[in-house]
Write a protein that binds this DNA or RNA. Structure first.
Lengths: 225, 225
DNA sequence: ACCTGAACACCGTTCAAGT
DNA sequence: ACCTGAACACCGTTCAAGT
């Protein structure tokens, strides 16, 4: 994308209240460029300067919007967690099994959630790597990143609450960690290439692998049934 | 560590057949330095030049032993998989439950394997990150790395074979992937700081989280019992 | 055989301006 | 307010020597 001539924004009346050298939203453009680059070359090879090049600005311009490289990647991870939360929520909403169904049926909802999770990871492997790879938030910078993580965890936690309303919160928390472990672990192994998996087999594979796990967990959580 | 004076190796009779500028085994020294640096600053911040500095050589000397940075990291990952295989194997060997025990008892062996796995990941988080983070072997360089991975997978596969000798290899492979997913996923979440876990609680936590999962998988694998 | 020195193209980040 | 230019210290890697 060639740089605009500077006269382009100044001819005629000044309709834009705040002068903008760049195209409206550099922050957004940088995030888009970053996700693009991550998808092409992976998280290790990503550079700030390349992101600036794609956005059509000097590399120094980035620091106007992000404190440093980590802050940019944290913003990408944050968007990722919000997208993951939205997609798993949508997958649950699209399911025919009602909230009041018996446990045996509700297990299907957990498998559907896992399938949506794995599909997200496969669709955006580099972003997923940024979300789970480096400890971006080790020193508790980026509280909004923490909130986005909590939002994606909440989808699973909500489903477990509906499945086992009588269980202790401790038992539900353990079940949540166990399920998240299994789902994240499977996603990571698939992304690392350790488990070959064609796109049209995702549904059946997730069902075959996770159903025993979900049943094992649910059996502890809902002993009455 | 200051550089040795060159006369130190040449005084008296030439007892060492092959002349060595450096201390015997630069390759080994570089691997040790790399693991040290990884533990200190993490995988992203690791640099070849720092590894050379710690080994006391010019950074160009590395290329005598490793083709490039990826090759050095692949060697570190390879050592890691071999160590992981050895430690999980040792954990199984130290268990009182004999190989011929019924399935219900043999499940304990799988939990012990998982505990050893998680302990390894916690003891060497940066190395574990290198083992599972970047796709070092995406283009099938480093066949010996692939062998080391296979060796660590074989420990779990062997245990599943003993647990369910009559199951189809397909069923056992699926069970292996499911278990590995759960164990790796839990390790990754713990390392990422998403699941706080004190060292003295590792055993009970692994047991609480993975026993339902292992039982769920085993129930499918050994339906008779 | 094994290691070094100088050089290249690149990186993230800081400082001091420009409009 | 927002962006740029020049500079700094550093990186992985190549080339051409040194012993």
């Amino acid at each position: 994308m060639p740089p605009r001539p500077p006269s382009a924004t100044t001819h005629g009346a000044p309709e834009v209240p705040r002068a903008q050298y760049h195209h409206g939203d550099l922050r957004h453009a940088l995030l888009t460029a970053t996700v693009e680059i991550l998808a092409e070359v992976g998280a290790e090879a990503f550079t700030l300067r390349e992101a600036a090049r794609r956005a059509g600005v000097n590399h120094r311009a980035i620091y106007r919007h992000f404190e440093d490289k980590r802050a940019l990647l944290a913003a990408v991870a944050e968007e990722g967690y919000l997208a993951l939360a939205a997609e798993t929520r949508a997958a649950l909403a699209a399911i025919e099994i009602p909230p009041g169904a018996p446990a045996a049926l509700r297990i299907e909802r957990l498998v559907a959630l896992a399938e949506a999770y794995l599909r997200f990871a496969r669709r955006e492997p580099a972003r997923y790597q940024v979300m789970f790879g480096p400890r971006l938030n080790a020193d508790a910078r980026f509280p909004s990143l923490e909130e986005a993580i909590a939002a994606s965890v909440a989808v699973l936690a909500g489903e477990l609450r509906a499945l086992a309303p009588a269980a202790t919160s401790r038992a539900r928390r353990d079940a949540g960690v166990a399920l998240w472990s299994a789902i994240h672990g499977l996603s990571a192994l698939v992304l690392a290439g350790r488990v070959p998996l064609a796109d049209r087999h995702v549904r059946s594979y997730v069902a075959a692998l996770l159903t025993p796990i979900v049943e094992g967990i649910a059996r502890r959580l809902v002993p009455a049934e």
